[in-house]
């Protein structure tokens, strides 16, 4: 798959902020989570797909993350709840008050047996994906920043071999856990991701917003934003760091000042051929990097800040969840 082939197939403007997306295996059905607290299904094969709201008690705040496993969809929200849905009936199956603060991200394990969630209560929790039973909980993240303010736990990833979980927080601390005993086996610091302004504005901004393991599970990509001069805005460089999971050695450190802002999503390409990052400031971007040299292979501006990104197993179809827009992209060769 050549990143230069990336092109937009369709876009669907909207009034809300769309934080997350996941599609069916054939990319015909799309589920999204919204700032209006709704979870919607869209048949994207239709010329003008309608949003169909999944029914049930639902969420009461921003729906920030979702994960699909067969006909089960799980969504996480700032309302602290995880909700299981049946995608075939569009009905809610169960809901769990999963955390004490905002849920930021969920992922499923490669064997799809478990769901992993992180939230601003700084806990990482592992759930049985079928029953919704809590299996484990652990944390290596301080609830307050060094400057006495609430911290946040934004990012989680699970390695493709299922052996490792990584969690990343606001002040740039990463913990890598084994999935046997849920113990930390490596801690990594990325302090540049966190900007504390002690003088002009006296608050902070930034944080680790995305994590992704390489296909061989040996490298961990960490995404966020570099140091920001004026923290009123997301005017800092998009920042990507890549570490060796065994040694903790930083192998790559990249900053892009052309298309700035938070890196909200990271995807490793087939056989780790490239690293796709997506995010933004007031606008959005997608940037492909060479994972060894750090060279930018391809870059696209996007009209709205990108919060969520989903791609299929073949890396052909991409769905982007963004500020007031959902869009469908393809990396397949363009038809002549």
């Amino acid at each position: 798959m050549n990143p230069s082939n990336l092109h937009q197939l369709k876009k669907w403007p909207c009034q809300d902020i769309v934080f997350c997306a996941a599609a069916s295996d054939d990319s015909s059905q799309l589920w999204i989570g919204s700032s209006d607290a709704g979870v919607y299904q869209m048949n994207v094969t239709e010329e003008k797909p309608q949003r169909v709201k999944l029914s049930g008690d639902g969420h009461s705040s921003y729906v920030t993350c979702l994960a699909r496993c067969g006909s089960t969809l799980v969504t996480g929200s700032y309302d602290r709840k995880l909700i299981w849905w049946d995608t075939e009936t569009g009905q809610q199956i169960r809901q769990i008050k999963a955390h004490d603060k905002w849920i930021r991200r969920i992922v499923t394990t490669p064997n799809q047996s478990h769901l992993i969630s992180v939230a601003d209560d700084m806990q990482c929790r592992v759930w049985d994906l079928v029953s919704g039973t809590l299996v484990a909980e652990f944390s290596d993240h301080s609830p307050v920043t060094p400057h006495h303010y609430p911290s946040m736990l934004y990012a989680v990833a699970v390695s493709p071999d299922g052996s490792k979980i990584a969690t990343g927080d606001r002040v740039g601390h990463v913990a890598i856990w084994d999935t046997e005993k849920f113990q930390t086996n490596k801690q990594i610091e990325t302090p540049v991701m966190y900007t504390w302004d002690p003088q002009k504005r006296r608050h902070s901004i930034g944080g680790i917003r995305s994590l992704a393991f390489s296909a061989d599970s040996q490298r961990l990509a960490v995404g966020g934003i570099g140091k920001i001069g004026n923290i009123d805005h997301l005017g800092g460089p998009a920042r990507l760091e890549v570490f060796n999971c065994q040694t903790g050695e930083r192998q790559l450190e990249l900053e892009d000042n052309k298309l700035k802002g938070l890196i909200e999503q990271i995807v490793w390409g087939p056989a780790d051929a490239w690293l796709l990052t997506a995010g933004g400031d007031n606008k959005g971007f997608t940037t492909f990097y060479h994972p060894e040299s750090g060279e930018i292979l391809h870059q696209e501006p996007h009209p709205g800040h990108i919060h969520g990104l989903w791609c299929d197993a073949a890396f052909e179809n991409f769905f982007i969840a963004a500020h007031k827009q959902v869009s469908h992209w393809s990396m397949a060769e363009k038809e002549a």
Binding site: M152, I205, H233
Partner: peptide, 13 residues
């Protein structure tokens, strides 16, 4: 108490 000018990341700020 400065600075509340949250053009970016209003909710975290």
């Amino acid at each position: 108490r400065a600075w509340w000018d949250s053009h970016g990341q209003n909710f975290e700020t």
